[in-house]
Design a protein around this nucleic acid. Sequence first.
DNA 1: CGCCTGGTTGAGCAACGTCAAGAACTGTGG
DNA 2: CCACAGTTCTTGACGTTGCTCAACCAGGCG
Lengths: 236, 236
Amino acid sequence: MLAKDICADCAVRDQALCGSLDDQELVALNSIGQRRRVPRGATVMWAGDESVICANLLSGVLKLVASTADGREQIVGLLYASDFVGTPFADHADFTITALTDAELCVFPRQAFERVLEDHARMEHVLLQRTLRALNEARGRMLTLARKSAEEKIAGFLLDMASRAGSTGCRATPDGPLTFDLPLTRGQIADVLGLTIETVSRQMTKLKSAGVISLPGGRGITIADQNALELRAQAA
Amino acid sequence: MLAKDICADCAVRDQALCGSLDDQELVALNSIGQRRRVPRGATVMWAGDESVICANLLSGVLKLVASTADGREQIVGLLYASDFVGTPFADHADFTITALTDAELCVFPRQAFERVLEDHARMEHVLLQRTLRALNEARGRMLTLARKSAEEKIAGFLLDMASRAGSTGCRATPDGPLTFDLPLTRGQIADVLGLTIETVSRQMTKLKSAGVISLPGGRGITIADQNALELRAQAA
DNA sequence: CGCCTGGTTGAGCAACGTCAAGAACTGTGG
DNA sequence: CCACAGTTCTTGACGTTGCTCAACCAGGCG
C-alpha cells in the first residue's frame, strides 16, 4: 500500500498539520510516522522525560497535566482529534500527556519530524499558527483560573463543551435544549478549572436546581437555558 | 544611513528575532520597521482592537493583560527587552499591552511583517521556537495560578525576579544576599499572581519577619536566604 | 451479592478577599 | 528646605468562598 493511500483513510487528513502537504510530501512524512492506539488512562509522555516523539491525534481526547512536587495537579490543556501533540525543539517534555478516552495517534520520532518541518516551510507555518492560537487560549485560561468564581468557571466550561459537542450532540429544535455527554469526569473537570471535585459537583447541582441544565444520569448533560448559562459565565 | 547601520546600534540586534537574519535581509525588514518610544503607563495595543502591528521590544517592560467584562484583570505575560510583541496572523488583539516602564519598540505593520516572515523561513522558525517556549511558560503559570498558595506564589515570583535581576543586581559575595529593585508595584505583582494587593503586601511582610528577605524601602528588595525562599516556593 | 469507581451532600474551617484607616514615599511648587 | 497632594504600601477587622474531611448514594461488573 502506498503512503498516500494510508493517509487517504485518515480521519483528520485535512484538519491536521498534514493538510498543508501535497501527496508527495505526505509520502515523506508518512515514511517516518506510525499509527498507535492508546487505551483510556494510558500515559503517552511523562513530564521530565526526554522528548522523543511528536504526533497528530487522530481520535480521542488527551490531557496535558502540570503537577507540583507534592502531587497537586492542573490540566493545562486538552487535545482533540487533529490536534498536534508534543513539543518540537524541546529536549524534555514539560507536561505529562495522558489519554482520557481511548485514542489513536500518528506518531513521529521528534528529531525526524523536526527535519521534515525544516524542509517544509508551509507545514512549519501551519504549526506556528496553531501554536499562536494555543498560546492565546492558554493565556485566556489564565484569566479564568486566577480571577473567575467557581460558578463562572463551571458555566464557561459547560458552554465550551456544548459548542464543541455542537454537531455531535442532539437537540430537539435548532435553538432548543442541547444534550450531549461530557467527555470528562467531575474530577477531571475540577483539574481543568482549578477547583475540587466537591465544588464542581455542588455547582452542577446548583445549576440543575436553577433549571439552567439537567443531568440525565451518567455523563449526560442537557443545556436547558443557554442564555442563563452565558449570564452566569460572566457574573461578578 | 543604511538600514544595517541603523540596526548596528540596536541593543537587542542578536537576541531578538532579527538575529536570524543576515545583513541583506535586515535591510528589507528595517525598511518596514520604525522605532517608537512608549512612556510608562501608555498602552501599545487594546484588547479587541484590530491587530495592526508587531514589534520587537528594545528596552523596558510591557505587560500583557486579560480582563473580564466587569473589570477584573490578570497579567498573562510580561515582555522584556528582545521579546517579540504582538500576534501575527490574528485579526484582532486578544490582550491589552501596556508599558510598565518607559519602553522602546521597533514596530512593524503586521501584514508587512507577515510577508517578511513568509519569505524568510529561518525567521519564522525562530518565532516558532519562541512561541513554543512562551506556550510552555504560560502553561506552567496556569499551575501556579490555580494550585499554589499565596506564599508559594510570592516566593516563586521573587526567585524569578531574582534570577532575572541576576547580573544587574548587586550582591556582596558571590553566593551571598542579592539586592535589586522590583520592576513592578505591589498591585502589578498581585495582577501577575492572581492575588490582591493586600495579600501580596502581607506575604512580603511575613517573609521579612522570617528573615528570608529584607525590604530596604521603595521597590528595593534583598534576598537574604535563597534556600528558605526556594523551600517556601514549593511548600504544601 | 459485594466491590469499586464516581458522584452527591453536609459540617466546619482556613485562606484569601473586602473594606477601611493610616503610614510612607514621590514629586511639585513655594 | 518645607508643605502639600497623590500615589503606593502596610496593617487591622471582618466576611465569604471554596477546600477539607467524612459520610452516604448510584451504577457497573465479577
